[in-house]
């Protein structure tokens, strides 16, 4: 556990050692802002809630989150520091978990810095703050799931650009699985239960539930399973391919 924290601290400090972290946070706030106010018509809706803020997160995260996760392992592999890290008395699981937690924490910081929109709705009206807290939690969980996918993919290549593109694609598949377009396509070929299964794999459905303020165990289990499965696969692929 303490070794996980050691890795976590180094990694998180690493984000802020270069201007990249600040640039990322600015871009993150910019895009969440644009989608909320311009695309989501925050004011025109005349509702004191953050629906238009959270609505776009599954899509926004498609490119924002892989930008965080792409360097997790690709950079270690291309610079050779993976050899330094993996010959310290730290297990692969501790290293994977420590680095993932740092990335998740960083995403959490970026998300937390969107608090002015929360303040805004509270000034303008009387929103259901319970729903908003739940939505923030859902958004954070979704970021974690995306990061776990990104971390896994980043361990498979030493090229950060490839890691970014493949992670974005991977997450896109996971979101799109819940869209009517995909489900109708599936229905046209397979029976209904297949379509239902596909839909249950989608991030969208689970995220939507939580943003309604309903924190259902099934949704938590979904995100938790996705996260743990990806990180476990991450440790396995890393052990198999770290020296290539």
């Amino acid at each position: 556990m303490s070794r996980t924290i050691t890795v976590f601290k180094r990694e998180l400090a690493g984000y802020f050692a270069t201007p990249v972290a600040y640039v990322f946070i600015v871009v993150f706030l910019l895009f969440t802002g644009i989608t909320t106010f311009n695309v989501g018509n925050f004011y025109e809706r005349g509702q004191a809630d953050l629906m238009s803020f959270f609505f776009f997160h599954p899509w926004l995260y498609l490119f924002l989150i892989p930008a965080i996760s792409m360097r997790l392992w690709s950079e270690e592999r291309s610079s050779g520091t993976i050899e330094l890290l993996m010959t310290l008395p730290i297990s692969t699981t501790q290293a994977v978990f420590g680095k993932f937690l740092a990335a998740w924490c960083f995403a959490g910081i970026a998300l937390a810095l969107t608090f002015p929109v929360w303040v805004t709705v509270n000034v303008l009206g009387e929103p259901d703050n319970g729903v908003i807290v739940a939505s923030y939690l859902g958004s954070f969980l979704m970021a974690g799931a995306y990061l776990a996918i990104g971390s896994l993919i980043s361990s498979l290549t030493r090229n950060q650009v490839i890691a970014f593109v493949l992670s974005a694609l991977g997450c896109a598949v996971l979101v799109a699985a819940g869209s009517d377009w995909v489900l109708n396509l599936v229905r046209s070929v397979f029976p209904e239960w297949v379509a239902q299964t596909v839909a249950s794999f989608s991030v969208q459905a689970h995220f939507d539930q939580i943003t309604k303020g309903i924190i259902d165990l099934r949704d938590l289990v979904y995100f938790g399973t996705l996260l743990v499965a990806c990180l476990a696969a991450n440790a396995v692929t890393l052990n198999a391919s770290k020296a290539d």
């Binding site: 890795v7 601290k9 180094r10 690493g14 330094l84 008395p89």
Partner: peptide, 29 residues
């Protein structure tokens, strides 16, 4: 690994850290 001190070929190091930061990290690990 606890018993070993290792200098890998080419001495790969975290370039965005300072030597002090790196040594702190390794000492802790």
């Amino acid at each position: 690994q606890r018993k070993i001190g290792y200098l890998p070929e080419g001495a790969p190091l975290y370039g965005d850290m300072t030597p002090r930061g790196l040594l702190k990290f390794v000492a802790e690990a």
